[in-house]
């Protein structure tokens, strides 16, 4: 139950990151002008990001109800790995081998915290 809640929250919050980036690039790249903000806030990417955030945050509160924040928050960094994969696959950003190495360190750290 705890694991399922945690995994769902991490997935939704990571998805929100990727959606925010797509929205920011498409609507705010020229700087935060008034028109840019309006079109960004009502864009499908940002609305979907807000939905993922709202639902993910509700699940996250349920996680915090059951778990120490000093344990739960490092586990959230598993989202970093998901975001790195998504930034390569969905956003087409280049990811260097060293960055993948960092992601592996994060994964080991997450495993240790999960075991603690």
């Amino acid at each position: 139950m705890d694991e399922l809640l945690l995994a769902s929250a991490i997935l939704l919050l990571a998805a929100a990151q990727v959606l925010q980036k797509r929205g920011a690039v498409r609507h705010l790249a020229g700087g935060p002008g008034p028109g840019g903000w309006r079109s960004a806030l009502v864009s499908p990417e940002i609305l979907a990001a807000i939905a993922c955030l709202a639902f993910g945050t509700a699940l996250w509160l349920a996680v915090l109800y059951r778990m120490d924040v000093s344990k739960a928050f490092p586990l959230l960094s598993a989202g970093t790995i998901l975001v790195l994969i998504a930034s390569r696959v969905l956003l087409g950003e280049r990811v260097s081998p060293a960055r993948w190495g960092g992601a592996i360190l994060v994964a080991i750290g997450v495993a240790l915290v999960a075991a603690s």
Partner: peptide, 19 residues
């Protein structure tokens, strides 16, 4: 937990400092 958290931080610093 301390060591795991430090590994997480080292991982994210490595990810951000390189490339």
């Amino acid at each position: 937990r301390t060591f795991g958290t430090l590994l997480v931080v080292a991982g994210v610093v490595l990810v951000s400092a390189t490339g």
